[in-house]
Design a protein around this nucleic acid. Structure first.
Lengths: 204, 204, 204, 204
DNA sequence: CATGAATGAGGCTTCATTCAT
DNA sequence: GATGAATGAAGCCTCATTCAT
């Protein structure tokens, strides 16, 4: 093995990162492989040593992105002790802050992923992955809520599933609005909103 | 004037509708002008009598769409009398139901618009229009909330703006989730969630 | 119908002829569509208005060639009256002369067709067509021989099928040799050989 | 000399054999060096230690093939004693049988050679070699016929050269037909045909 | 006005060949 | 010597746009 697996993985990631950058800037259709290669400091053909096609590379970027922005933080936060309401707040805040900081420039990528899942041949691959990701996320949030009910913090007649779905959506959409409107502060909006929601959830 | 302006307008709209259909199905990049022309029952060249370019046509579809799905319904609902909480509920329900119906055809179009606003040359045009649309929508909702506060229905220490922003986002995102996952019922989730939110808003 | 079907057919043939020329010169793999287009005096893209792919065009050339060099002459000669031996001779002579004259430059095309039927994805299409063409040709010759037997000209214990197969092959191969070796005269060789064969066929 | 010439020659032949196999299966254009290397059990780069280019390797395969399938058998048969007619029959039969056996793998290779000689840059190299091979083969057959004339077996007014040319061509073409049509039996056809030809050659 | 045939720029992808290890 | 990762030239094909009819 002249070139170790680690080195291959390394280079793969290097290409993925370059691709993410270019896809984010130009969109899937507007991106040309040559630019990704140039951005990664390699030859055009080399990209095809690591990915079978432009679409494949795009999907790899998608997977990487999902993982990167993944639920690690959420899981750890939701697994903490303390009142469910506090954990919910912490989760919300962490998401908004993390994203606002480092993911802002990458948000257009998410839109490209949505768009990819909406049309073209890629549809199913992306749609499935998105469904899964949303389901996972909803699962984390709904168990957090369920925990709050069991602890007697939240009203017992709450159905955790739809609430979780809505909350996940809210966070998602706040970031979207922030992306559209640079003066919009998603963390602040989320704070205010979560106050209301938690107050609505809480047993009187 | 042999051909009246009305006739031109008519044909223009006909093309836009055909384009909307095809763009929704195939995405912007995946759409070929020929198919739009065929779908509109006209010749390929004729499209260029009414629009300067593919991008122009796409933007025209966008404008038409924004207008069509515009805030007419929302305004009318929010302008009704009665308790703010009831109006908020009605607004939520109306949105979810209206969209659920026409979603399959239309939602992927919205994604294409997002994607267009995220990348490419079209960016600014779309981004501005989206910002505006969101701002308008937020405005309607926040004045509804403000009204609730003034009426003494809602807690006085609520800041209507961020709550409105979050609500708008929630509705948006619930529809997105519904689009991804066909068994997901956005109207039901919205109902449960609005109960919580209104309960959180309400003065004890 | 702005452009008549006749005109389309005309242009199609024009492209086929240009393609035949270039394929003959450069071979299938060595041919680039651009050159065919240039040779036909049209734009590169126009080729694709008439043919779906390079392979399709190649097959169209094949079909055209088969038809062009087709059995018209053979059929007419074999249908003549007179002794079978004379008709066999005339057929042989006509084939050699026709081909030597106008088809020499095109012979490399035939080799490309063979090669195409030997490998690649096109295999079956070409193979089937070749089989058919050979079968047709063999049929003509064998019925000519059968006729000779029935007339009492040829020995009754002859089996016409294998003889026809061999004769068809002989003519084919003589032209091939002529193509390799420009001083080789296939008509002369065929004459001498047919003398021997007819003498061998003839009832003593 | 650490690595003996013999070892180099060995490896060279190993590559040639692998290449022959792949070229036969995929055709020249359809073959990728990587597959040849894999088939030979060596690295892609190693091929270039032994051959300057793909074309060079192809020509080496051609030369090897010509030598391998060379006239050894023919010479030995034609050199036997006994009547010329018997030797002619034996030669025909041996050719058909030998080839029928190994045809499937090898015949498409021959077509590739033909095709190579018909077009491309390789043309002359191949064409010359083919001309030579045909000339050699014709020489063997024509001297056999001449021998038959001298022995008084065959008619004295026969010109051996064109007859030999035609016979060589016939065998060639029968194998071609057999390759196209798997139910066609070239040995049987050759037998019948040679009966007629020998009968035509024989002094009454 | 409407049309659709013609066009050619441009993108994805392949693969022979090189060269550092 | 052997290797296979890297490369970029080159080709097929698509499709927005034009323009003669």
């Amino acid at each position: 093995m002249v070139v170790s697996d680690t080195q291959k993985k390394e280079k793969r990631k290097q290409i993925i990162k370059a691709a993410a950058q270019v896809f984010a800037q130009k969109g899937y259709a507007g991106t040309v492989i040559a630019e990704i290669a140039a951005c990664a400091g390699i030859g055009k053909g080399t990209v095809y040593e690591y990915f079978d096609s432009k679409e494949d590379l795009f999907f790899a970027v998608f997977e990487w992105y999902m993982e990167e922005s993944g639920s690690a933080a959420m899981v750890s936060i939701s697994a903490l002790g303390g009142p469910a309401s506090a954990r919910l707040m912490a989760l919300s805040d962490s998401l908004m802050k993390t994203w606002s900081k480092e993911m802002k420039e990458a948000y257009s990528l998410v839109m490209e992923f949505w768009s990819a899942s909406a049309s073209s041949q890629m549809r199913q691959r992306f749609k499935d992955a998105f469904s899964q990701a949303y389901a996972d996320f909803r699962g984390i949030v709904s168990s957090l809520i369920r925990d709050g009910i069991e602890r007697g913090e939240f009203r017992p007649n709450i159905d955790p599933e739809p609430i979780a779905a809505a909350l996940v959506g809210t966070w998602d959409a706040l970031l979207l609005q922030a992306w559209f409107d640079h003066v919009f502060d998603p963390a602040d909006a989320a704070n205010h909103f979560m106050d209301v929601v938690i107050s609505g959830l809480t047993r009187l």
